[in-house]
């Protein structure tokens, strides 16, 4: 199928090469968004320089003395530097791998459901967590996990005769809890997102496969998954670019900022927040952002380069 599209494309390409003018409407259509991106994203980039300057409000904020990397130092002075980098990267990798497998698995099964009415209900139901803010999730989490009144300790472990667990002081459970909540919160949206792709796959392919005697597994492996590949690759590239970022609510509010859990919950964002909470220094917080951006940028370039090598049409640029 792809081969035929490509052939058509190259045929079209030759014809259009002469017609430069025909692109003008396309550029015009892109213009509103590009103007917005310029204003919203590019113009403020000028301000990134304050990460390298002393904070000085006496004149323009962009005229403080250059201190180069002084504002970055606080990120690297403690032993936490290692821990927070490890946590940020590992959790993100975990989210990419588990999240992708889980959401593809659920979406495929979801699309096998024959009752459309129930399917609609499920779809709405699993989207609910997507609407609840992380702060509220943290309160709900506390209702489940609190030592004294927690639902899990009182209504599940106690009747089973298991000793209550002090959830907020036991780091070993938290990687699972964080992964669970992350998946729980995002499942409705990823289901929607992948379903969008699955429903556009023409039924003809499946019909033809059935006639050829293909099993359901074969249909999934040879039709559905190849169709989903581009979007999965794309989402992975984009996630890798954000591997130094973390959902602040998930790592700060959900564990109730419990000190006993820091070894498994500190990420670059939460560390920076805790360190700057009292100082409120905008040059240092900008420095954190610059550090995350540059690492993310390098990673996305590398991933994109690798993707280009293996499958050109799936790369970003």
């Amino acid at each position: 199928m792809r081969a035929t599209t490509d052939m058509k494309l190259s045929g079209v390409r030759k014809k259009n090469k002469i017609k430069w003018k025909s692109y003008i409407p396309l550029y015009l259509m892109a213009l509103p968004a590009l103007i917005y991106v310029f204003i919203n994203n590019y113009m403020p980039l000028y301000g990134m320089q304050i990460a390298f300057r002393e904070l000085d409000f006496s004149g323009s904020i962009f005229s403080g003395k250059f201190v180069w990397f002084d504002n970055f130092k606080f990120l690297f002075t403690t032993k936490d530097a290692m821990i927070m980098t490890r946590n940020t990267v590992l959790y993100n990798l975990l989210f990419i791998v588990v999240g992708t497998i889980f959401s593809v698995f659920v979406a495929i099964l979801f699309n096998e459901i024959l009752s459309k009415r129930l399917a609609k209900f499920y779809q709405s139901a699993v989207l609910i967590p997507f609407f609840i803010s992380m702060v509220v999730v943290s309160y709900l989490g506390f209702a489940f996990l609190s030592s004294e009144n927690g639902f899990i300790n009182n209504s599940i472990l106690k009747p089973l005769g298991i000793d209550p667990v002090s959830w907020y002081t036991e780091p070993k459970y938290w990687p699972y809890i964080i992964l669970f909540v992350h998946t729980w919160k995002g499942m409705g949206y990823s289901l929607l997102f992948i379903t969008v792709r699955i429903i556009t796959i023409s039924k003809d392919y499946y019909e033809a496969a059935k006639i050829d005697g293909a099993t359901k597994w074969q249909q999934i492996f040879y039709i559905t998954l190849p169709f989903l590949k581009p979007v999965i690759v794309l989402m992975t590239i984009l996630s890798i670019g954000r591997i130094f970022y973390s959902d602040f609510g998930l790592f700060y509010q959900l564990p109730m900022s419990s000190g006993a859990l820091y070894d498994v919950t500190t990420t670059i964002d939460t560390y920076s927040f805790r360190a700057l909470m009292n100082l409120g220094d905008i040059t240092m917080s900008t420095a954190t952002g610059v550090y995350q951006s540059i690492v993310g940028f390098v990673l996305i370039l590398v991933t994109n380069y690798v993707t280009r090598k293996f499958s050109k049409e799936d790369s970003l640029f």
Partner: peptide
Amino acid sequence: PGPVKTEIAALDAVAAQYAKV
């Protein structure tokens, strides 16, 4: 705190971890 800003940021992060516990 100006001269030791970096250290204070790091100390704030440490204190947040232990003081309450």
